[in-house]
Amino acid sequence: MPGAAGTGGEGMLSKDTREILLQAEGLKLWRGERCLFRALSFELPEGAVLHVSGANGCGKTSLLRVLCGLTEPEEGEIRWRGRSICRCREDFQHAFAWLGHLHGFKAELSARENLAFSVSLRRETDPDVRNETLGQVGLDAVADLPCRVLSAGQKRRLSLAMILLSAAQLWILDEPFTNLDPKGRNMIADMLDRHCANGGTAIVAAHQDLGVEQRYLRHLEMEDTG
């Protein structure tokens, strides 16, 4: 079966004047013997959530890793505010926050310490602001325990707190709902809604509905190329 392309940008909004933040054009990636995607293109303006869906192993994570620059695509270009991300890598990295399968923090440090470290790589923050965010994701009671004793869902919440505090305009989230209870899933939907209302944008790979407002939502269905 020939490699299939995703369909992009089926926004609910008609022509709008919002700035296009992220553009992908003609992306192609091989992994081993398989072509995961080819000629994949989409555009993402401010205030939009791109929901990437598709079967297991169809290349959602690979696509997200290509978009953040961890993996180089064989072909195609990704542009951030009109400039190729190869040419403005550091600006682009400051502009997005990445949540992968792995939590991205240390098991030996407490939630408070991990959050302080993760944020201080990006910007200066007040401890009060960090404590407030920990409360917002429901971790204030366990904030001083080493993260290795946290449950899988609590770890995910800490990763989300890092995303919230990153002040990044683009969020790239790979399966953020994993291990979260219904309350936590609603929390992500609220996070995404608020982020979009503030002109942010997000790319989310998930198997389930994101629960965000329809006007923000766009879909990218990835086909399994076997």
């Binding site: 953040c68 620059g69 961890l70 550091e90 990295q93 997005f96 992968g100 792995l102 991205g104 790589l121």
Partner: peptide, 8 residues
């Protein structure tokens, strides 16, 4: 990954 993508 987070270090590599931290923009530093």
């Amino acid at each position: 990954e987070q270090l590599v993508l931290s923009g530093h």
